[in-house]
Amino acid sequence: MAGPKAGTVASSTVRPDSPTFWKEVLGLPGGEALATCIQCNTCTSSCPVEALEPEFNIRRLIARIKLGLREDVLSDEALWACARCFACVARCPKHVRPGDIVEAVRHIALGEEREGPGPRHARAFVESIRDGGRIHEARVTLESLRLAGLLREGWLPARMAWRGKAPRLRRRPLKSVPEIRALLDAAEEGA
Protein backbone atom coordinates (compact mmCIF):
# COMPACT_ATOMS: atom_id res chain seq x y z
CA MET A 1 0.00 0.00 0.00
CA ALA A 2 1.37 3.40 -0.93
CA GLY A 3 1.18 5.40 2.28
CA PRO A 4 1.25 9.17 2.58
CA LYS A 5 4.58 10.87 2.06
CA ALA A 6 6.46 10.68 5.33
CA GLY A 7 6.40 13.87 7.32
CA THR A 8 3.43 15.59 5.76
CA VAL A 9 1.54 16.70 8.81
CA ALA A 10 -1.33 17.97 6.73
CA SER A 11 -2.01 14.53 5.32
CA SER A 12 -5.33 13.29 6.61
CA THR A 13 -3.98 9.78 7.17
CA VAL A 14 -1.33 10.91 9.64
CA ARG A 15 -3.04 10.67 13.00
CA PRO A 16 -1.70 11.19 16.50
CA ASP A 17 -0.92 7.73 17.84
CA SER A 18 0.87 8.65 21.03
CA PRO A 19 -0.33 11.71 22.97
CA THR A 20 2.52 11.23 25.46
CA PHE A 21 5.27 11.08 22.84
CA TRP A 22 6.53 14.50 23.88
CA LYS A 23 7.05 13.25 27.43
CA GLU A 24 9.06 10.34 26.11
CA VAL A 25 11.37 12.75 24.24
CA LEU A 26 11.45 15.17 27.17
CA GLY A 27 12.84 12.44 29.41
CA LEU A 28 15.85 11.76 27.21
CA PRO A 29 19.21 13.55 27.08
CA GLY A 30 18.78 16.33 24.52
CA GLY A 31 15.01 16.46 24.80
CA GLU A 32 14.77 18.27 28.14
CA ALA A 33 13.79 21.71 26.79
CA LEU A 34 11.27 20.52 24.21
CA ALA A 35 8.23 21.97 25.95
CA THR A 36 9.41 25.58 25.78
CA CYS A 37 9.39 25.75 21.97
CA ILE A 38 7.22 28.62 20.71
CA GLN A 39 7.35 27.54 17.04
CA CYS A 40 9.07 30.77 16.02
CA ASN A 41 10.90 29.03 13.13
CA THR A 42 14.34 30.50 13.89
CA CYS A 43 15.76 26.96 13.86
CA THR A 44 14.39 26.09 10.45
CA SER A 45 15.50 29.36 8.94
CA SER A 46 19.04 28.70 10.27
CA CYS A 47 19.10 25.12 9.03
CA PRO A 48 21.44 24.48 6.07
CA VAL A 49 19.81 21.12 5.38
CA GLU A 50 16.29 22.50 5.15
CA ALA A 51 17.56 25.03 2.61
CA LEU A 52 18.37 22.10 0.29
CA GLU A 53 15.90 19.44 1.46
CA PRO A 54 12.61 20.97 2.69
CA GLU A 55 11.41 17.46 3.66
CA PHE A 56 13.55 17.91 6.76
CA ASN A 57 12.05 20.73 8.80
CA ILE A 58 13.25 20.95 12.39
CA ARG A 59 10.51 23.27 13.65
CA ARG A 60 7.89 20.98 12.16
CA LEU A 61 9.62 17.96 13.69
CA ILE A 62 9.12 19.53 17.12
CA ALA A 63 5.48 20.30 16.30
CA ARG A 64 4.91 16.69 15.23
CA ILE A 65 6.42 15.41 18.48
CA LYS A 66 4.10 17.67 20.46
CA LEU A 67 1.13 16.53 18.37
CA GLY A 68 1.90 12.93 19.27
CA LEU A 69 2.67 11.74 15.73
CA ARG A 70 5.03 9.10 17.03
CA GLU A 71 5.05 6.63 14.15
CA ASP A 72 5.11 9.41 11.57
CA VAL A 73 8.20 10.95 13.20
CA LEU A 74 10.08 7.70 13.82
CA SER A 75 9.50 6.21 10.39
CA ASP A 76 10.42 9.41 8.55
CA GLU A 77 13.71 8.94 6.67
CA ALA A 78 14.21 12.71 6.65
CA LEU A 79 14.95 12.43 10.38
CA TRP A 80 18.39 11.20 9.34
CA ALA A 81 19.14 14.22 7.16
CA CYS A 82 20.12 16.50 10.07
CA ALA A 83 23.83 17.27 9.68
CA ARG A 84 24.43 18.04 13.38
CA CYS A 85 25.66 21.53 12.57
CA PHE A 86 23.90 22.90 15.66
CA ALA A 87 23.21 26.29 14.09
CA CYS A 88 19.67 25.86 15.44
CA VAL A 89 20.99 25.20 18.95
CA ALA A 90 23.06 28.37 18.82
CA ARG A 91 20.21 30.52 17.56
CA CYS A 92 17.02 29.27 19.23
CA PRO A 93 15.79 32.17 21.37
CA LYS A 94 14.16 29.77 23.86
CA HIS A 95 17.21 27.51 24.32
CA VAL A 96 15.24 24.49 23.15
CA ARG A 97 18.37 22.85 21.62
CA PRO A 98 16.52 21.55 18.55
CA GLY A 99 19.55 19.66 17.19
CA ASP A 100 19.77 17.77 20.47
CA ILE A 101 16.09 16.84 20.14
CA VAL A 102 17.01 15.14 16.86
CA GLU A 103 19.56 13.12 18.85
CA ALA A 104 16.90 12.08 21.37
CA VAL A 105 14.42 11.06 18.65
CA ARG A 106 17.08 9.11 16.77
CA HIS A 107 17.89 7.36 20.05
CA ILE A 108 14.30 6.13 20.24
CA ALA A 109 14.36 5.03 16.59
CA LEU A 110 17.63 3.12 17.10
CA GLY A 111 16.25 1.47 20.23
CA GLU A 112 13.37 0.15 18.11
CA GLU A 113 15.81 -1.17 15.52
CA ARG A 114 14.34 0.87 12.72
CA GLU A 115 15.70 0.25 9.24
CA GLY A 116 17.09 2.58 6.59
CA PRO A 117 20.38 4.22 5.65
CA GLY A 118 20.46 6.45 8.75
CA PRO A 119 20.04 3.74 11.39
CA ARG A 120 22.32 1.44 9.38
CA HIS A 121 25.10 4.01 9.45
CA ALA A 122 24.70 4.70 13.18
CA ARG A 123 24.80 0.99 13.98
CA ALA A 124 27.84 0.37 11.77
CA PHE A 125 29.60 3.22 13.54
CA VAL A 126 28.85 1.92 17.02
CA GLU A 127 29.83 -1.62 16.03
CA SER A 128 33.13 -0.28 14.78
CA ILE A 129 33.84 1.34 18.14
CA ARG A 130 33.00 -1.90 19.92
CA ASP A 131 35.30 -3.84 17.61
CA GLY A 132 38.31 -1.59 17.52
CA GLY A 133 37.89 1.22 20.03
CA ARG A 134 38.18 3.66 17.17
CA ILE A 135 36.42 3.90 13.84
CA HIS A 136 37.50 1.69 10.99
CA GLU A 137 36.51 4.07 8.21
CA ALA A 138 36.62 1.59 5.34
CA ARG A 139 34.30 -0.77 7.14
CA VAL A 140 31.85 1.85 8.36
CA THR A 141 31.66 3.30 4.86
CA LEU A 142 31.07 -0.08 3.26
CA GLU A 143 28.46 -1.15 5.79
CA SER A 144 26.66 2.18 5.54
CA LEU A 145 26.67 2.44 1.76
CA ARG A 146 26.59 -1.27 0.98
CA LEU A 147 27.99 -2.47 -2.31
CA ALA A 148 25.47 -0.58 -4.42
CA GLY A 149 26.32 2.68 -2.69
CA LEU A 150 30.02 2.01 -3.04
CA LEU A 151 29.60 1.46 -6.76
CA ARG A 152 27.81 4.81 -7.00
CA GLU A 153 31.04 6.38 -5.72
CA GLY A 154 32.47 5.65 -9.15
CA TRP A 155 36.20 6.18 -9.39
CA LEU A 156 36.52 7.95 -6.04
CA PRO A 157 37.78 4.94 -4.04
CA ALA A 158 40.31 4.15 -6.77
CA ARG A 159 41.47 7.77 -6.95
CA MET A 160 41.83 7.89 -3.19
CA ALA A 161 43.81 4.65 -3.20
CA TRP A 162 46.08 6.01 -5.94
CA ARG A 163 46.85 9.06 -3.81
CA GLY A 164 47.54 6.90 -0.76
CA LYS A 165 44.47 8.60 0.68
CA ALA A 166 42.25 5.56 1.04
CA PRO A 167 41.29 4.50 4.54
CA ARG A 168 43.10 1.39 5.71
CA LEU A 169 41.49 -1.90 4.74
CA ARG A 170 42.80 -3.64 7.80
CA ARG A 171 43.08 -2.00 11.11
CA ARG A 172 44.68 -3.05 14.37
CA PRO A 173 42.20 -2.72 17.25
CA LEU A 174 43.29 -0.74 20.30
CA LYS A 175 44.85 -2.80 23.06
CA SER A 176 42.14 -1.52 25.35
CA VAL A 177 39.19 -2.87 23.33
CA PRO A 178 38.09 -5.28 26.09
CA GLU A 179 38.10 -2.36 28.53
CA ILE A 180 36.12 -0.14 26.14
CA ARG A 181 33.61 -2.89 25.47
CA ALA A 182 33.13 -3.52 29.18
CA LEU A 183 32.50 0.19 29.69
CA LEU A 184 29.94 0.39 26.87
CA ASP A 185 28.17 -2.70 28.19
CA ALA A 186 28.07 -1.32 31.71
CA ALA A 187 26.63 1.97 30.47
CA GLU A 188 23.98 0.11 28.48
CA GLU A 189 22.95 -1.95 31.47
CA GLY A 190 22.50 1.37 33.20
CA ALA A 191 24.54 0.02 36.07
Binding site: L28, E103, L110, A122, R123, V126
Partner: peptide
Protein backbone atom coordinates in the same frame (compact mmCIF):
# COMPACT_ATOMS: atom_id res chain seq x y z
CA UNK B 1 26.55 8.47 16.49
CA UNK B 2 27.40 6.84 19.79
CA UNK B 3 25.67 9.76 21.53
CA UNK B 4 22.48 8.93 19.61
CA UNK B 5 22.79 5.22 20.14
CA UNK B 6 23.52 5.45 23.85
CA UNK B 7 24.24 8.85 25.40
CA UNK B 8 25.45 7.34 28.67
Amino acid sequence: NLQEYNPE
